[in-house]
């Protein structure tokens, strides 16, 4: 009985998501993000069109599907948000503190520019095949650090990412859990973030997803654009290689 119940739940949620695809409020964030990308801003009044996301200055199309990656100018592996912060500091002249401000928005009175930029940049990778390389030693290291973080059990509840995301066919309450240790689970999960999260009324990024997982794992707060967040993103993005990116999506 529980098996049949679980399968019909999966089907119904899939139907719900398909019905909500048209008119995804994420498009509002994408439009705002595109405007921010093209705008001259910061003390140096430079636009993001000078920012290199890995495929050349200002090249947005397909860039997200290749992130995280090593950037020689920074001599580190960066995910999208880390790279945007880098461009805000180096190109636009913001202080790092200012660039890291307000990563997660809350209503129309407290919008996050970062989330809008993420919505725009990721939308330009929709349909692109996930293609995260491990060609530089630091990329390789980041992947292995992400894997280590994935299995790190801590906090009063002894939770690791693997506690919920380490097996096939499990769910928490009625929310199905992708197995992120395997290719299929990582592909389905990673390619649908960022997403308009209906329950939040906000466009939420992968950085937010990691932050919110750790909150529920009873860990202290994951710092926005920190090394651990990039390492985990590297681990999951690489595991998702081979399928088309399909975000911004819409979720409950």
């Amino acid at each position: 009985m529980p098996c049949a119940f679980a399968q019909s739940t999966v089907d119904e949620i899939a139907k719900y998501r398909a019905a909500l695809q048209d008119g995804n409020p994420a498009e509002l964030w994408e439009a705002r993000g595109e405007a921010l990308w093209k705008q001259k801003r910061g003390p140096k009044q430079v636009s993001f069109e000078q920012c290199d996301l890995g495929l050349g200055a200002g090249v947005v199309k397909g860039a997200y599907a290749r992130l995280p990656r090593y950037f020689a100018d920074a001599d580190r592996v960066m995910d999208l948000e880390t790279r945007l912060v880098w461009c805000m500091v180096k190109l636009q002249g913001y202080s790092e503190a200012d660039a890291l401000k307000n990563p997660f928005g809350s209503g129309n009175e407290k919008k996050s520019d970062m989330e809008a930029l993420v919505a725009y940049v990721t939308s330009e990778s929709r349909g692109a095949k996930m293609n995260v390389a491990l060609s530089h030693p630091k990329e390789e290291q980041m992947y292995r650090l992400g894997e280590k973080m994935f299995y790190f059990r801590g906090g009063p509840h002894d939770f690791a990412c693997a506690t919920c995301h380490g097996e096939d066919g499990k769910r928490i309450r009625l929310q199905d859990l992708p197995n992120l240790t395997g290719t299929e689970g990582a592909q389905k999960a990673y390619t649908t973030w960022p997403a308009y999260r209906v329950s939040q009324g906000e466009l939420r990024s992968f950085q937010w997803r990691l932050y919110d997982c750790f909150r529920q794992q009873r860990f202290p707060e994951l710092i926005f654009a920190s090394d651990a967040s990039v390492a985990l993103t590297m681990f999951l993005a690489r595991n998702a290689n081979g399928v088309a990116f399909d975000a911004p999506a819409i979720k409950r």
Binding site: M149, P156, P220, E221, L222, S226, D227, A231
Partner: peptide
């Protein structure tokens, strides 16, 4: 990994870094 943990989390409310 140990260094990464230290630099990637901050205390918030009742969740101190001791939890790591």
């Amino acid at each position: 990994a140990a260094a990464m943990l230290k630099s990637s989390f901050k205390a918030n409310g009742q969740a101190s870094l001791d939890r790591l």
